[in-house]
Write a protein that binds this DNA or RNA. Sequence first.
DNA 1: CTGAAAGCGCTTACAG
DNA 2: CTGAAAGCGCTTACAG
Lengths: 350, 350
Amino acid sequence: MEHPPNDRAATLVDVAKLAKVSRATAARALGGYGLVTDATRERVLAAANELNYRVNELARSMRSGRSLTIGVVVADIANSFFNTAIRAIIETASGAGYQILVLNTDDDIERERGAVRVLTEKRVDGLIVVPASRTDIAHLKGGGDPEVPLVLLDRYVDTDDIDYVISDDFAAAQGAIQELERLGHTKIGLLVATAQVREYIPALPDAVVSTVHERYCGALEAMPHSSRNGAWVRFSRGNVDTASQAALEILQEEYRPTAILATNEEMALGVVQAANNLGIAIGSDLSIIAFDDAPWARVFNPPISVIRRPVEALGSMAVRLLLRKMEDSTFRESFKLKAELVMRGSVRQL
Amino acid sequence: MEHPPNDRAATLVDVAKLAKVSRATAARALGGYGLVTDATRERVLAAANELNYRVNELARSMRSGRSLTIGVVVADIANSFFNTAIRAIIETASGAGYQILVLNTDDDIERERGAVRVLTEKRVDGLIVVPASRTDIAHLKGGGDPEVPLVLLDRYVDTDDIDYVISDDFAAAQGAIQELERLGHTKIGLLVATAQVREYIPALPDAVVSTVHERYCGALEAMPHSSRNGAWVRFSRGNVDTASQAALEILQEEYRPTAILATNEEMALGVVQAANNLGIAIGSDLSIIAFDDAPWARVFNPPISVIRRPVEALGSMAVRLLLRKMEDSTFRESFKLKAELVMRGSVRQL
DNA sequence: CTGAAAGCGCTTACAG
DNA sequence: CTGAAAGCGCTTACAG
């Protein structure tokens, strides 16, 4: 009963022929645009159905100039913040009919450049990028002529002509330190995830990403003088083992801190691991607050206090902002969302 | 110094004109195929550079019939197994010049159908799917004529004409239970992540995904008779809170088990949370083994014993298999990789 | 409401 | 080694 047009997939022409209409009419009936009688529409749909027709989105995109695809360039999809954000991005985008191309950079600027290039060539309608650098951003400013709409996620860069959706990490870090002080802590350590670093170092590297900068500065500003000499501060690569090494160093200082702020999931796990190794009990001997409410944080014993950022909101907001910019290329707006401090058993009052 | 062809992005014609060659020659020089003199190639590349030319992959794909894009349809990108696999998929694919379109189904078969349809319409060159059902698979068998190469990841389905890359979960579950018995455990509970279930139930639901089936059957087969009545078995939705409820029920049985096997990350966290709530000490009062070596597992106190599946290998294998199938449509092969039991402090010898 | 024609930006044979 | 022509499968004006 099928009309197999030889062997190849059915095309618009096949449908049009079978329905005895022109290509234009068939396209209108199938695409749901323009005008068609109910009768002809039905005829076309029946034909399409019989031939098991699938529109070729490549052709449609080329002709219409819209690919219905959004490119997402992210530091590390295995990190819980990013994959939760991507989940929200996929959700929001597919609700609006857009699909997502995801690339991973591991915070490598060269890979980011390549990613943006590939996505541009694939003619994505828009781009969501977690930039690996605050200053190396020429490739984001459209080396090309008609620029692809772009929204930065999680981090801003050193220019005022690129919109972003971020959380207020300065305030969040500041608030966490203040809360520790309120509870009597005066010796406070800081473990900062910093992709730009090989292993871990005590001093702030030159070029760091905005989140690193904000979290460090926010924490430092609130820090009691006794904690500002940097003995309890380390900037570490974003993996658990390195973080653990760095935390060990901090915790083995002559006067060790009574509390540590960890700036992401990996740093938090590193601190916990180091504390376990040294037999230091979290919650009683050492208090800890971490950025991002990873799924395991509240299940730990004691549960870990966290700075909960509105991850889903950040992701879906980035998409919605991007969609608006795609409609109106002059539209400009940026968002900085508040994070929430969630205190749990990992912090003790002194 | 630029030659802005009005306002639009430079196209192949613009480059050809500036380089004073035909479109075909320009295409050959830029695309790196066919024959061109070094001299003309340089001229073309210089022109392309001056015009900041970016090839339109949409057009290239349409003409060449290859989109250099692979579709990935996954249950939940926020789950650590899946996002680690996706990371490997992106890595392997981009090494071969392919980009990844990711869709999320939450194990909903309707969404899976929609995802496959969209990706087919976007003319992906291949498809990697984590199927939400073992039987509802018509949409995977190419309702269309020339089928898109397909590889299943993590789960097989009830047909022998679709290739897959999975881990040997039956053997893994069996091995874990046997090890518990070897250590003296006779009362062993089982918490099985089952997307098909609303909350949690004690009996195996009708239609479950292959991983659920394999893990359950593997565990059951090794189970001592004392543990087979099902009092300590629950099938739970894949989120921590539901899992925790289910675990609470198991742990509040009159004779509670001395060990529990949890079939994924969420189930493991659920057990830990329930144990914490009841004041049951993991490692001494209750032993636990979990599927998947999530990043937090070894950092817990005590560290959680896990069944470590070769996640990256599964992901990159799926891509390599798919690439081979794309080259040769008759190529058939499937892989079942071994998992490794990693014993840590969460399991005690009785 | 429907159709004939042109064209999106490339690549693919086919000549030369 | 290079070019002229055709065509991938659609949509977009433009007529009627």
